[in-house]
Protein backbone atom coordinates (compact mmCIF):
# COMPACT_ATOMS: atom_id res chain seq x y z
CA UNK A 1 0.00 0.00 0.00
CA UNK A 2 1.33 3.41 -0.84
CA UNK A 3 0.39 6.63 0.79
CA UNK A 4 1.51 10.01 -0.38
CA UNK A 5 3.19 11.99 2.36
CA UNK A 6 1.37 15.18 1.66
CA UNK A 7 0.19 16.10 5.14
CA UNK A 8 0.04 19.84 5.23
CA UNK A 9 0.80 22.17 8.08
CA UNK A 10 -1.99 24.58 7.25
CA UNK A 11 -3.88 23.62 10.37
CA UNK A 12 -2.27 22.98 13.71
CA UNK A 13 -2.74 19.59 15.34
CA UNK A 14 -5.56 20.71 17.62
CA UNK A 15 -7.57 22.26 14.77
CA UNK A 16 -7.12 19.12 12.72
CA UNK A 17 -8.19 17.00 15.67
CA UNK A 18 -11.35 19.10 16.03
CA UNK A 19 -12.14 18.45 12.37
CA UNK A 20 -11.50 14.76 12.94
CA UNK A 21 -13.92 14.76 15.88
CA UNK A 22 -16.51 16.47 13.67
CA UNK A 23 -16.38 13.54 11.26
CA UNK A 24 -13.96 14.85 8.61
CA UNK A 25 -12.34 11.76 7.05
CA UNK A 26 -9.64 13.83 5.34
CA UNK A 27 -8.56 15.04 8.79
CA UNK A 28 -8.20 11.42 9.92
CA UNK A 29 -5.83 10.80 7.04
CA UNK A 30 -3.85 13.98 7.59
CA UNK A 31 -3.44 13.33 11.30
CA UNK A 32 -2.29 9.79 10.57
CA UNK A 33 0.40 10.97 8.17
CA UNK A 34 1.48 13.81 10.41
CA UNK A 35 1.55 12.15 13.81
CA UNK A 36 2.47 8.52 13.16
CA UNK A 37 6.09 9.24 12.11
CA UNK A 38 6.62 11.41 15.20
CA UNK A 39 5.15 8.89 17.63
CA UNK A 40 6.80 5.90 15.99
CA UNK A 41 10.27 7.49 15.91
CA UNK A 42 10.01 8.50 19.55
CA UNK A 43 8.88 5.03 20.61
CA UNK A 44 11.73 3.45 18.66
CA UNK A 45 14.26 5.74 20.33
CA UNK A 46 12.95 4.76 23.74
CA UNK A 47 12.52 1.04 23.05
CA UNK A 48 15.13 0.20 20.43
CA UNK A 49 12.79 -2.38 18.91
CA UNK A 50 10.83 -1.74 15.74
CA UNK A 51 7.96 -4.18 16.28
CA UNK A 52 7.34 -2.93 19.80
CA UNK A 53 7.60 0.68 18.66
CA UNK A 54 4.95 0.02 16.02
CA UNK A 55 2.60 -1.45 18.61
CA UNK A 56 3.18 1.48 20.94
CA UNK A 57 2.61 4.01 18.15
CA UNK A 58 -0.65 2.36 17.16
CA UNK A 59 -1.84 2.21 20.78
CA UNK A 60 -0.88 5.82 21.51
CA UNK A 61 -2.83 7.02 18.51
CA UNK A 62 -5.82 4.84 19.38
CA UNK A 63 -5.90 6.73 22.66
CA UNK A 64 -5.83 10.00 20.77
CA UNK A 65 -8.72 8.95 18.50
CA UNK A 66 -10.65 7.96 21.59
CA UNK A 67 -10.12 11.25 23.42
CA UNK A 68 -10.63 13.42 20.31
CA UNK A 69 -14.30 14.33 20.98
CA UNK A 70 -13.40 15.62 24.46
CA UNK A 71 -10.20 17.39 23.37
CA UNK A 72 -10.20 21.02 24.45
CA UNK A 73 -7.95 23.17 22.34
CA UNK A 74 -5.66 25.41 24.31
CA UNK A 75 -5.36 23.21 27.39
CA UNK A 76 -2.44 21.14 26.11
CA UNK A 77 -0.58 20.66 22.87
CA UNK A 78 -1.48 17.48 21.02
CA UNK A 79 2.21 16.69 20.58
CA UNK A 80 2.91 17.14 24.31
CA UNK A 81 0.07 14.80 25.17
CA UNK A 82 1.23 12.25 22.60
CA UNK A 83 4.84 12.28 23.76
CA UNK A 84 3.64 11.66 27.30
CA UNK A 85 1.32 8.81 26.35
CA UNK A 86 4.02 7.26 24.16
CA UNK A 87 6.61 7.45 26.93
CA UNK A 88 4.20 5.91 29.42
CA UNK A 89 3.45 3.02 27.07
CA UNK A 90 7.19 2.53 26.50
CA UNK A 91 7.83 2.56 30.25
CA UNK A 92 5.22 -0.17 30.71
CA UNK A 93 6.95 -2.30 28.10
CA UNK A 94 10.39 -1.68 29.53
CA UNK A 95 9.15 -2.73 32.96
CA UNK A 96 7.73 -5.92 31.50
CA UNK A 97 11.08 -6.69 29.96
CA UNK A 98 12.62 -6.33 33.44
CA UNK A 99 16.20 -7.45 33.18
CA UNK A 100 16.18 -8.10 29.47
CA UNK A 101 18.44 -5.43 27.94
CA UNK A 102 17.60 -3.33 24.93
CA UNK A 103 18.53 -4.86 21.61
CA UNK A 104 22.25 -4.91 21.05
CA UNK A 105 21.79 -3.90 17.45
CA UNK A 106 19.01 -1.32 17.39
CA UNK A 107 16.87 -1.42 14.31
CA UNK A 108 17.33 1.83 12.50
CA UNK A 109 16.67 2.59 8.85
CA UNK A 110 19.20 2.31 6.12
CA UNK A 111 20.93 5.61 5.54
CA UNK A 112 19.33 7.70 2.85
CA UNK A 113 22.76 8.71 1.59
CA UNK A 114 24.62 5.95 -0.15
CA UNK A 115 28.04 7.50 0.22
CA UNK A 116 30.58 6.90 2.92
CA UNK A 117 29.25 9.92 4.75
CA UNK A 118 25.88 8.20 4.96
CA UNK A 119 27.43 5.08 6.39
CA UNK A 120 29.25 7.11 8.99
CA UNK A 121 26.05 8.90 9.94
CA UNK A 122 24.38 5.55 10.26
CA UNK A 123 27.18 4.15 12.36
CA UNK A 124 27.02 7.13 14.72
CA UNK A 125 23.24 7.00 14.96
CA UNK A 126 23.45 3.31 15.72
CA UNK A 127 26.13 3.79 18.34
CA UNK A 128 24.09 6.56 19.96
CA UNK A 129 20.98 4.37 20.04
CA UNK A 130 22.95 1.60 21.67
CA UNK A 131 24.31 3.99 24.29
CA UNK A 132 20.85 5.48 24.87
CA UNK A 133 19.62 1.97 25.57
CA UNK A 134 22.05 1.72 28.46
CA UNK A 135 20.75 4.90 30.14
CA UNK A 136 18.13 4.90 32.89
CA UNK A 137 14.66 5.34 31.32
CA UNK A 138 14.08 8.92 32.46
CA UNK A 139 17.49 10.12 31.37
CA UNK A 140 16.99 8.49 27.98
CA UNK A 141 13.58 10.15 27.56
CA UNK A 142 14.85 13.59 28.53
CA UNK A 143 17.91 13.42 26.27
CA UNK A 144 15.89 12.15 23.28
CA UNK A 145 13.25 14.85 23.70
CA UNK A 146 15.84 17.61 24.00
CA UNK A 147 18.53 16.63 21.54
CA UNK A 148 16.77 14.47 18.95
CA UNK A 149 13.19 15.73 18.99
CA UNK A 150 14.50 19.24 19.58
CA UNK A 151 12.01 20.29 22.27
CA UNK A 152 12.57 23.04 24.82
CA UNK A 153 12.91 22.32 28.51
CA UNK A 154 9.47 23.72 29.47
CA UNK A 155 7.73 21.34 27.09
CA UNK A 156 9.89 18.44 28.24
CA UNK A 157 8.98 19.31 31.83
CA UNK A 158 5.29 19.21 30.88
CA UNK A 159 5.69 15.89 29.08
CA UNK A 160 7.59 14.27 31.93
CA UNK A 161 5.53 15.96 34.63
CA UNK A 162 8.59 17.28 36.46
CA UNK A 163 10.15 20.70 37.00
CA UNK A 164 12.54 22.36 34.54
CA UNK A 165 15.48 21.94 36.93
CA UNK A 166 14.85 18.22 37.12
CA UNK A 167 14.82 18.14 33.31
CA UNK A 168 18.19 19.89 33.20
CA UNK A 169 19.60 17.46 35.74
CA UNK A 170 18.38 14.39 33.82
CA UNK A 171 19.81 15.73 30.56
CA UNK A 172 23.15 16.62 32.11
CA UNK A 173 23.56 13.21 33.72
CA UNK A 174 22.40 11.45 30.56
CA UNK A 175 24.84 13.34 28.35
CA UNK A 176 27.70 12.70 30.71
CA UNK A 177 27.00 8.98 30.62
CA UNK A 178 26.62 8.99 26.82
CA UNK A 179 29.91 10.80 26.39
CA UNK A 180 31.67 8.22 28.53
CA UNK A 181 30.13 5.35 26.59
CA UNK A 182 30.83 6.78 23.15
CA UNK A 183 34.29 8.17 23.81
CA UNK A 184 35.66 4.66 23.82
CA UNK A 185 34.50 4.20 20.23
CA UNK A 186 35.96 7.38 18.77
CA UNK A 187 38.22 5.73 16.21
CA UNK A 188 35.62 3.20 15.20
CA UNK A 189 33.16 6.01 14.54
CA UNK A 190 35.39 8.15 12.39
CA UNK A 191 37.07 10.37 14.96
CA UNK A 192 40.80 10.45 14.64
CA UNK A 193 43.11 12.13 17.10
CA UNK A 194 45.30 14.68 15.37
Amino acid sequence: MTMPFDAEDELDDAALLARYAAGDAAAARQLTLRLTPRVFAHALRLLGNRAEAEDVAQEALIRLWRIAPEWRAGEAKVSTWLYRVTANLCTDRLRRRKSVPLDDAPELPDPAQGAEDGLQQQARASALQQALGALPDRQREAVVLRHIEGLGNPEIAAIMNIGPRAVESLIARGKRALTEMLAGRRNELGYHDD
Binding site: M1, T2, M3, Y20, A28, R29, L31, T32, L33, T36, P37, F40, A41, L44, R45, R50, A53, E54, A57, Q58, L61, I62, W65, E107, L108, P109, P111, A112, Q120, Q121, Q122, R124, A125, A127, L128, Q129, H147, I148, G150, L178, L182
Partner: peptide, 24 residues
Protein backbone atom coordinates in the same frame (compact mmCIF):
# COMPACT_ATOMS: atom_id res chain seq x y z
CA UNK B 1 25.77 11.86 17.24
CA UNK B 2 22.54 13.73 17.84
CA UNK B 3 22.76 15.25 14.37
CA UNK B 4 23.32 11.80 12.90
CA UNK B 5 20.28 10.51 14.79
CA UNK B 6 18.12 13.36 13.49
CA UNK B 7 19.22 12.73 9.92
CA UNK B 8 18.41 9.05 10.11
CA UNK B 9 15.03 9.36 11.74
CA UNK B 10 13.26 6.01 11.52
CA UNK B 11 10.13 6.22 9.38
CA UNK B 12 7.03 4.12 9.92
CA UNK B 13 6.28 1.44 7.35
CA UNK B 14 3.26 1.60 5.08
CA UNK B 15 1.68 -1.23 7.05
CA UNK B 16 1.74 0.77 10.29
CA UNK B 17 0.33 3.85 8.54
CA UNK B 18 -2.47 1.74 7.11
CA UNK B 19 -3.27 0.27 10.54
CA UNK B 20 -3.30 3.68 12.21
CA UNK B 21 -5.50 5.17 9.52
CA UNK B 22 -7.92 2.24 9.73
CA UNK B 23 -8.17 2.79 13.51
CA UNK B 24 -8.71 6.51 12.99
Amino acid sequence: FFAAARKTRPEPGADLLARVQADA
